[in-house]
Amino acid sequence: MLKVFYCVLSRDITLALRRRTDVLTTLFFFIIVVSLFPLGVGSEREQLRMLGPGVVWVAALLASMLALERLFAADYDDGTLEQLLLTGQPLALLVLGKVVAHWLLTGLPLVLIAPLVAMQYHLSSTAIWVMMAALAIGTPVLSLIGAIGAALTLGLRGGGILLSLLILPLYVPVLVYGAGAVSVSAIEIADTQPYFYLLTAFLMGSSLLAPLAAAAALRISLE
């Protein structure tokens, strides 16, 4: 069973590394969005420090959402998705493999680049660590829930816009507690504990339920 999971995972990663540009576009989109805000909002230090967590999280939301469209689209176009549905393996497991690969390629780079970006917002070092931890727990949830939307809007014209319309309301809890954790850490580090409990709960819940929902959505889309 696990061998199949790794097979899908390694396939997607080798595929993505053969087209390196796709990976970088998401990363640069994230960096651009984050660096746009100070130009718009003004670069006064105290304001930026207060604004930082929210802006970084919204940018992470948008970046991971834009990258979602490619999750199933390539396989849908060349027929491999049909074959995935017809393998002798539970579809939810294959979907989980694809989502983990997608997260490693788009979510993880966001987490690693976060410190660099957080400096633009003069965040303290503890805030940077808390942000990295929150992003590390939060971005997989974004990929998991987003996979359901990607499966639902498969093959639709204008699917990208529709995907954001469907999925962004579902991202609200991760955004609220992700950004909340970082802004609370500036006041009192111990207070961030309940935030991480909630984020981890979202991660566990969505990693269990989201693949099942995405698999059902794929079966519906490929009918």
């Binding site: 396939r11 595929l15 053969r18 087209r19 390539a74 176009d77 060349d78 027929g79 491999t80 049909e82």
Partner: peptide
């Protein structure tokens, strides 16, 4: 099916 079901990059 009508589509080959193979990845072009592999």
């Amino acid at each position: 099916g009508h589509l080959n079901g193979i990845k072009a990059d592999l």
